[in-house]
Amino acid sequence: MNQPPALPSRLQPAPLPYCPGCGHAAVHGLLVQALAELDLAGRSILLPPSGCARAMCEHLEMDMGQAPRGQALAVATGLKRVLPQQVVLAYQGDGELIAGLDQALLAAQRGEGLTLLLVNNSGPAPYGGQRPADASLDLGRLLAGAAGCVYAERVGLAGAEQVARAGQALALALRAQMQGLGFSLVEVLAPCPKRWRMAPAQALAWSGRDMSQALPLGVLKDAAHAEAEP
C-alpha cells in the first residue's frame, strides 16, 4: 500500500481550521513548498496576517512575528534592516493591506528586501463579510508601480495550472529577495466561500472567472528579469 506523501518538515501535522474551500489552506501549502524548494525554512521569518489565517502561527514550523493590523510591512522593514540575510515574508489579506496601505506602498517604494504574499479574497473575512467599496482596487498593480518593486505577479487557484503557476511565482518572488534586488510580491486571488455565500466549487470558479476578469492574472512587473533566470 502506498504511503501518503510526507509532510514538508516545516508544516505541523495539525488540522487547519479553515472552512471547506477556503483559499488559505492551498496558499499555505504553496508557501511551505516554495520555502522547502529554496531551502529557506530555517532562515526566513514570516509575518502572519491578522485575519483568519493567523492560525498559521500554529502550523508552520518557522520563526514568526505578529504585527498590528496593517503594520506588517513596517514591522517587516525593521526586521529586515537588522537581519538582511534573512528572508522576510509578510502574509497579508487584502483587508489589512488596505488598512495600512501606506506602509506597504512605501516599503515597496523604498525597495525593502521583502516579499509580500497578498491573499486577496475581496474583503476582510473576520468582520462578517462586508464587501468594502475598495474591494475592486487593484492592489497588485498599485504596489507593482512603486519604484522599488522588482517583481510582482497575480495568480489564481482555480485549477491545477493556476496553482502550479502560483507556486512558481512565489519562488520567483522569494528568489528576487534572496538576490537582494528589492521588493517582491505575489497576489493570490483566493476564494472565501463562507463570506461569498457560495459552495466551495462555485467560489473557486467565481475567483477564477469573475474576480480575475476585474483583476487579470499575470506578471505585473519583472524588473528583476526573474523569468529570464534559468
Binding site: 512575528g65 504585527a67 498590528p68 503594520q71 513596517a74 514591522v75 517587516a76 522593514t77 525593521g78 526586521l79 529586515k80 534592516r81 537588522v82 537581519l83 501606506d102 506602509q103 512605501l106
Partner: peptide, 12 residues
Amino acid sequence: AAISMVMGAAMA
C-alpha cells in the same frame, strides 16, 4: 510606521 519598524527591529 516608525513604532512598527521599531517593533520589527526589537523582534530581531
